[in-house]
Design a protein around this nucleic acid. Structure first.
Lengths: 196, 196
DNA sequence: CTAAAATTTCGGAAATTCCTGAAAATTCAA
DNA sequence: TTGAATTTTCAGGAATTTCCGAAATTTTAG
């Protein structure tokens, strides 16, 4: 693994960004390194390339495993474990989004659900309850959407993203043409949208 | 501000989650508190409600300001500053997403752009360059999409989310009907998806 | 089963982040 | 302008996180 200045910049940047992400610097660097490395690398090579201790590599790999970001490869005639990230950047992005949902949304969602189910939740705090309900509903919607996106393959996801807010236009068109494959939901929400 | 057990749980949870978010615990708590508080609160009230020092409140508020998450309110005949979050949860969510894009995607994107523009970027590392290019393209697409979503109002955004992957079905329909507002991209990607 | 190879765990040093009380700075009424 | 009210800054102690080297554990070839 020949570390050119450009690659070094890239890897270091991943180290910095790692911390904004719930990974520590080391895990970020490892992730960046494996991402741009053509071949799978073993722990010694990683530690060597990044100039960090063997045990630190171990911890970093463990953390990345917990994020489902690694694939381990066994090489014929070599006892060491070799690691890479996946080949498909879109697949990686999907994993990332899924893991972040799990860490950042799910806990809050279940906290809200639990709180809102409590009998004495009201107790003179109608506003607070209303707000929690609003947040709960928003999170439910977002989670559902994210889950649905996970079911699309990379190509289709790209198509959707490229279309961007153009989707809204398509929706308008389909409405005008009265094309409905889910009449109830769409018609209600679309009418709610323009109460005129 | 009457802190019921439920509200306390809520606020504490926000404190915990804050750290997974680039905020510190205090800022997270303040954010949670202001979110479920019907009335704007001043720094003393906040510090009092959360049991934290006045200077800590100051830092937390500053941080939340940097996230564009606060609205400050002046109350007639009171010199203190009063703070709330916005009324519309969707607006808050939008702000959050925008700020996270700014912090988590933009820097990586510009790093990649810079790196890929360097003359000597190749230098025997074709694979690394290819990967960086892939990531660059992905981020560009995601950023564009996020920006477009920001242009939609809350109602329309909800409609889109509710539709979820149903959008893909709508796309298929429009393809069948030869309705195209962006013919080149859509037709190519959709055919690529099913090469049969 | 044994022994070498490889990996993980663990204690503690170093670095970073968090939080407070005190002091400085700012704002505003009079 | 003065002075009280309010907010911000700052130094340093507390708490947390990161990281290393050594020791313990696991794995596997022979």
């Amino acid at each position: 693994m020949n570390i050119t200045p450009t690659i070094d910049t890239f890897v270091q940047h991943f180290g910095e960004m790692g911390s904004r992400w719930g990974l520590n610097r080391t895990a970020g660097q490892i992730c960046g390194l494996l991402f741009i490395s053509e071949n799978a690398m073993n722990a010694d090579q990683i530690g060597d390339a990044l100039g960090i201790s063997r045990s630190n590599v171990s911890g970093g790999l463990k953390e990345l495993q917990a994020w489902n970001l690694l694939r381990s490869v066994s090489i014929q005639g070599d006892r060491k474990d070799y690691f890479t990230t996946g080949d498909d950047v879109w697949e990686i992005a999907r994993t990332l989004i899924d893991e972040r949902r799990r860490r950042e949304i799910d806990p809050t969602f279940s906290m809200l659900r639990t709180a809102l189910l409590k009998e004495d939740v009201g107790e003179g705090n109608d506003y607070a309850v209303k707000r929690m309900q609003e947040m709960h509903d928003l999170l439910e919607l977002v989670m559902g959407w994210v889950n649905e996106m996970q079911t699309l393959n990379s190509q289709r996801l790209q198509t959707l993203l490229k279309l961007g807010s153009g989707v809204a236009k398509v929706l308008d068109m389909t409405d005008k043409l009265s094309l409905r494959d889910a009449p109830d939901e769409r018609s209600t929400s679309v009418t709610a949208q323009k109460p005129s």
